[in-house]
C-alpha cells in the first residue's frame, strides 16, 4: 500500500509542487494549510510521514512538530522541516522539537525525493 505523506505549507504553490513531486513517485499526499490544520488532519486519518514548512500562520512548523510528537501514534514517524538558508538556527530548533531532517528552499524535486527515500521505509 502506498505510503501517505502530509504536506503542511501556507503557500499554495509550494504545496502544489510537493504534492506533484510525491504523487509522481507513487506516494499518497494530503495537504494542510498550516500547523493547526495539519494536526487536525493527522488526527482524523493516519499518515506515514510529515513534510512541513517552518513559517505558517496559526501554528508554525516547530510547534506543530512538538504537538505531533506528543501523539502516541506519531511518536516515531519521520518529519521533515522545510526551511530557507537564513534559518540555520531554526533547523536546530526543529531538530530539538523532534524533526527527523530538513530540506532548504529552494530545492529540486529530486532532492525532495532523495530525502523522503532516506527517512521513509
Amino acid at each position: 500500500m502506498a505510503k501517505t505523506i502530509l504536506t503542511a505549507d501556507d503557500s499554495a504553490s509550494m504545496r502544489q509542487m510537493v504534492t506533484f513531486t510525491l504523487k509522481g513517485a507513487g506516494y499518497e499526499v494530503v495537504e494542510a494549510v498550516d500547523g493547526k490544520d495539519g494536526l487536525s488532519m493527522i488526527s482524523q486519518s493516519k499518515v506515514d510521514m510529515i513534510i512541513t514548512d517552518l513559517n505558517m500562520p496559526n501554528m508554525d512548523g516547530i510547534e506543530m512538530i512538538r504537538n505531533v510528537r506528543t501523539m502516541p501514534q506519531y511518536k516515531f514517524i519521520p518529519i521533515i522541516l522545510l526551511t530557507t538558508e537564513s534559518q540555520d538556527g531554526k533547523k536546530k530548533e526543529g531538530k530539538a522539537a523532534g524533526a527527523t531532517g530538513w530540506i532548504t528552499k529552494p530545492f529540486k524535486p529530486e532532492q525532495l525525493l532523495a530525502v523522503v527515500k532516506k527517512v521513509l521505509k
Binding site: 501556507d10 503557500s11 504553490s13 509550494m14 509542487m17 514548512d53 513559517n55 505558517m56 500562520p57 522545510l82 530557507t84 528552499k105 529552494p106 530545492f107
Partner: peptide, 18 residues
C-alpha cells in the same frame, strides 16, 4: 507583524523555488 513577515517569507521561499 507576523503576517507581514510570513508574506515576505513565502514570496522569498517559493519565488526561489520556481
Amino acid at each position: 507583524i507576523g503576517r507581514v513577515f510570513r508574506a515576505m517569507h513565502t514570496i522569498k521561499g517559493s519565488g526561489a523555488m520556481f
